[in-house]
Design a protein around this nucleic acid. Structure first.
Lengths: 202, 202
DNA sequence: TTCCTTGTTATATGATCGGCCAACAAGGAT
DNA sequence: ATCCTTGTTGGCCGATCATATAACAAGGAA
């Protein structure tokens, strides 16, 4: 009989995905200090050399992880919801359990802290963030134009994004003091005085 | 003549303050990864053993730094400004250059990331943060009662705090895209629809 | 079956980590 | 002038850091 394989050999794409997933797990567990090559490879059940092999460097993995997080978030936030305006759908998505959890928010907090200090991540951030602002602004524009409102939709979008980030920060640090319902309500408190009810477009 | 002293001997209080200051400098420069005993002591121009001597452990210094940052912020935010309501004074203080700078905000971001993952800091945070919420709520109450408004001032205070944090986050990550003026305007966008003009109390 | 690409392991390396501790010395107390 | 408390130094420890590299092996191609 054939000898048992000493390890499973995955395609480059699958191994990369597994390592990114392990990196997220480590960050969620212990922040940037837990994001070490040893930790990530142990979490992935793999030897130390693989990160260098598949991502060139630890920073390479970090950038991949960040791009991955952004892609997943954008996809969730942009998904239309029947009967809801785009901005209302964004709010729902932003505070759904899979995005407003302590683990996911701790990952974001970890990445933010690195963006502020790691030049490699800053370039990646600038690209992704700009697209995010455009999306939110467009969603607010949708309601503003439908209702013939004249207001600075770009400034409102940036305030909204800041609010969502700040609510996530509080949720991450003290989950019991910031429920998804309270977070949603805070968003409505900001937007509805300027846009009217957010439920539908008309 | 007497031999030149080999080092300056400070009181415990002064040396502690110097080490805390050096710790802040390191955090502002490189986040939590730059907050190492070697780095801080080199920044303070002092040998490695002093942090253990004055703070028992690295975590001890971290807690002291956090308490220090909070004390300074609370003092700045609570300082009354002639002709301004308390909440308006808070906004002015929050986005003044000495608080809304990249360095200071990077320190906050660093501390937030640690609070989320370091149990020692969590206890300290809970105490400090509760006092902060009380202060902001009281400032909002001041206007609400003076104008006989009926609204959930606690929820509005928590939303306001989240917004301020989120604005600081954006400022830290991309200072050029979030000016102090834009940040102040965002706060007014949130509060004035519910409280009316924030300038004076009446 | 044989070859060959390449995913994977495992060890080595030099730097740096936090914490420990013995020796030193500054400067007030006596 | 001498003692004594205590702030300070600096070497040391085991652990862990990121990275480089050589040997190994899985599995499709030929």
């Amino acid at each position: 009989m054939a000898p048992a394989p000493k390890y499973s050999r995955l395609t480059s794409e699958h191994r990369r995905a597994a390592l990114e997933e392990a990196a997220l797990t480590c960050m969620a567990r212990g922040g940037i200090l837990a994001f070490t090559i040893d930790n990530v490879c142990k979490e992935a059940g793999v030897s130390r050399g693989l990160i260098t092999h598949h991502f060139q460097s630890k920073d390479g993995l970090l950038v991949a992880v960040y791009a991955n997080m952004y892609a997943k978030s954008i996809a969730a936030i942009d998904a239309p919801r029947p009967g809801l305006s785009r901005i209302a759908a964004m709010i729902e998505a932003s505070f759904a359990p899979e995005m407003f959890s302590r683990d996911v928010l701790n990952i974001w907090l970890t990445l933010w802290g690195e963006i502020a200090n790691n030049p490699v991540l800053q370039a990646e951030h600038r690209r992704q963030y700009a697209a995010y602002v455009v999306n939110v602004t467009a969603a607010i524009d949708e309601i503003a134009t439908a209702r013939a409102l004249t207001l600075d939709t770009d400034a409102l979008a940036r305030a909204f994004i800041a609010l969502v980030d700040g609510l996530g920060l509080q949720r991450c640090i003290e989950p019991r003091l910031m429920t998804p319902e309270a977070a949603k309500a805070a968003c409505h408190t900001l937007l509805e005085p300027h846009l009217g009810p957010l439920g539908a477009v008309g």
